[in-house]
Simulated scan of single mutants.
Amino acid sequence: IDTNWWKGTSKGRTGLIPSNYVAEQAESIDNPLHEAAKRGNLSWLRECLDNRVGVNGLDKAGSTALYWACHGGHKDIVEMLFTQPNIELNQQNKLGDTALHAAAWKGYADIVQLLLEKGARTDLRNNEKKLAFDMATNAACASLLKKKQGTDAVRTLSNAEDYLDDEDSD
């Protein structure tokens, strides 16, 4: 009730802070679950889920929190998101990429494996007509995806190699 004191929480502890020690910020975060997933902040993610923030909500790019957790390599966040009922594994963003595309492109084989175990589709192509397999930037991810696809497809250039030309390879 006293305006000279504000309630604050840091590292799981809540207490009172003199109001002249902090500045009020009017900015808000449009997609807090996405931000928690991007940053790998498990406690913030739990807080969002406890407050029933929609797990399949899309940001401006059409991406889900699961996509951003996979893009950032935050396996603990991915696992926490999988505890939510009806989580959408195969949502494609505006570029056509799925969480599996992101994990493969960033080279997170442990997350690729987890997504595949949960039933992520390997046949979805992004706007560049690439499968997650085509986006794989390391052998471990490519091997997992190839095994799941059950094909003998020849691996194409990785996404990273697509952007290198002879001048850049020096």
Rank of each mutant, 00 (worst) to 15 (best):
N41V: 00
N41C: 06
N41G: 01
L42D: 08
L42M: 09
W44I: 09
L45W: 04
R46E: 12
C48E: 04
C48D: 04
C48V: 01
L49P: 12
L49G: 03
L49R: 01
L49H: 03
D50M: 06
R52E: 11
G54A: 08
N56I: 01
G57V: 00
D59S: 06
D59R: 04
K60R: 14
K60Y: 09
K60V: 12
K60T: 13
A61D: 14
A61T: 11
G62W: 00
S63R: 15
T64W: 09
A65N: 05
A65I: 03
L66H: 00
Y67V: 00
W68V: 01
A69D: 05
A69P: 03
A69I: 04
A69F: 00
C70M: 08
C70L: 07
C70Y: 10
H71T: 01
G72L: 02
G73I: 13
G73Y: 06
H74F: 06
K75Q: 11
D76Y: 01
D76P: 06
D76R: 15
I77E: 00
I77A: 14
I77W: 02
V78I: 02
E79R: 12
M80F: 06
M80N: 04
L81E: 02
T83V: 03
Q84Y: 00
Q84N: 00
P85M: 07
P85W: 03
P85I: 05
E88N: 14
E88M: 09
E88T: 11
E88V: 02
E88H: 14
L89A: 03
N90Y: 06
Q92K: 15
N93W: 06
L95G: 10
G96H: 03
D97H: 07
D97T: 02
T98V: 00
T98I: 04
A99P: 10
A99N: 09
A99G: 11
L100V: 07
L100R: 08
L100E: 13
L100M: 11
H101K: 07
H101R: 10
H101C: 02
H101V: 00
H101S: 04
H101F: 02
A102H: 12
A102W: 10
A102R: 10
A102C: 13
A104T: 09
W105V: 07
W105Q: 15
K106T: 09
K106Y: 05
G107V: 05
G107E: 13
Y108N: 10
A109N: 12
A109E: 13
A109V: 02
A109L: 07
A109S: 15
D110S: 14
V112I: 03
V112A: 08
Q113T: 03
L114Y: 06
L114A: 14
L114W: 00
L114V: 13
L115S: 05
L116V: 05
L116S: 07
K118N: 11
K118T: 03
K118Y: 04
K118Q: 15
G119C: 11
G119W: 10
G119A: 08
G119P: 08
A120V: 06
A120K: 05
R121L: 13
T122P: 05
T122G: 04
D123F: 01
D123H: 09
D123K: 08
D123Y: 13
L124R: 12
L124M: 09
R125K: 15
R125Y: 01
N126P: 07
N126A: 01
E128A: 12
K129L: 11
K129W: 08
K129T: 10
K130S: 10
K130H: 13
L131G: 09
L131Y: 15
L131T: 12
L131F: 15
